[in-house]
Nucleic acid binder design. Structure first.
Lengths: 191, 191
DNA sequence: ACGGTTCTTGACCATGACGTCAAGTAAAGT
DNA sequence: ACTTTACTTGACGTCATGGTCAAGAACCGT
């Protein structure tokens, strides 16, 4: 992958780069299910070339997912990690992930696992998952977050938010954000 | 509508009935967006006939929505109305509506307002909406439900659940139900 | 500048839905 | 029984997507 066995021809190299760039733009804007023809159009290339060079949607996604998504997800984990209070840390993490799902359709698609069988994507998912589970456990240890919440619950709350964010096209961000708080409060133990 | 201006021919009457029945079955099973061709198949009729008799999906839905949906929605309102405690009443109502959305795709489609411009459908929606708003106000009066929850919030929580229920195909009902409770708890004031 | 490769193209097929209409079929009236 | 009229049919056109491949274009080494 890093050093292709046979060096590409100049036009091919140009196209690979152009397609990657176009995919970054289009996917960022409309998510990983954008029509490949749109990517081709933006890249100034025909869709056949995308299939040729990347083998199809899956290959193309794998070629951009790191740059497109990884940083965003890991950034949230890191930022949250610096918060001292475990409850605040857990809630901050979830809230930021949920907002990211609203703001970045591509990230959302990754977290929703809409691409079965793509290893790089699965890895990113797993990372978010594990981070959430860790923060959850720490928050539960304080007694402020309900003990009966399972890591799987959190997974599914992220999944649910993803489904909603996807449908939220016309809905204002502020309302979306507002309702996140209800769910977060619901995870706290009754005092 | 009740007494057609010109009496239908025998086969036409038979077909109208057959199509209505088929639509009830198919819509109940797979929601109001089922392919009309499927309805036609079940009715043993060609899809042209559906367009002919009902004018298209909207007409067909309006012909069955009362029987298919109205009872279910109103039933929940009535049942909840008999609960004495306002908080319990409100929470029971919401919970039951949410479960109905999971169990009955057709009801869900109605509550999601996926049929713009259909009056009978709008009426049902409005009913659910107003009932929820009334129960909310009464529950808030006790101080147990947060005062900053608006009727619009409740509307949107129903909308959100609908979007989720629609995507829940493979997800177990028990998990869905479990997560409803987090949201309900989130609507309560901190004690 | 030319031949041999490598690349690209866009017409083509497939899918699954909606909606229409000319032509064929069946009921009703006499 | 036969005609008239109501009714039904299913092939057809449309759209939006995914994916393929023979034919032609672009590049590169000599």
């Amino acid at each position: 992958m890093s050093t292709p066995a046979t060096r590409l021809r100049a036009d091919a190299r140009r196209n690979v780069e152009g397609i990657r760039t176009a995919a970054l733009d289009v996917f960022r804007e409309r998510g990983l299910n954008s029509p490949l023809e749109e990517v081709a159009r933006v890249a100034g290339v025909s869709k056949g070339t995308i299939y040729h060079r990347f083998g199809g949607r899956k290959g193309l996604i794998e070629a951009v997912v790191e740059e497109l998504v990884a940083e965003r997800i890991r950034g949230i984990g890191t930022a949250a990690g610096e918060i001292a209070d475990p409850v605040e840390r857990f809630e901050h993490y979830l809230r930021e992930i949920w907002l990211l799902q609203y703001d970045e359709p591509a990230v959302n698609d990754v977290l929703l696992r809409s691409l079965p069988g793509s290893e790089p994507v699965a890895v990113l998912c797993e990372h978010a998952r594990e981070t959430a589970a860790r923060f959850l456990a720490e928050a539960q240890a304080t007694g402020v977050v309900r003990a009966d919440v399972t890591p799987e619950d959190v997974d599914l709350l992220i999944w649910e938010r993803g489904i909603i964010a996807r449908a939220c096209d016309q809905q204002p961000r502020e309302g979306y954000r507002r309702r996140l708080e209800y769910t977060l409060r619901g995870l706290r133990a009754a005092v």
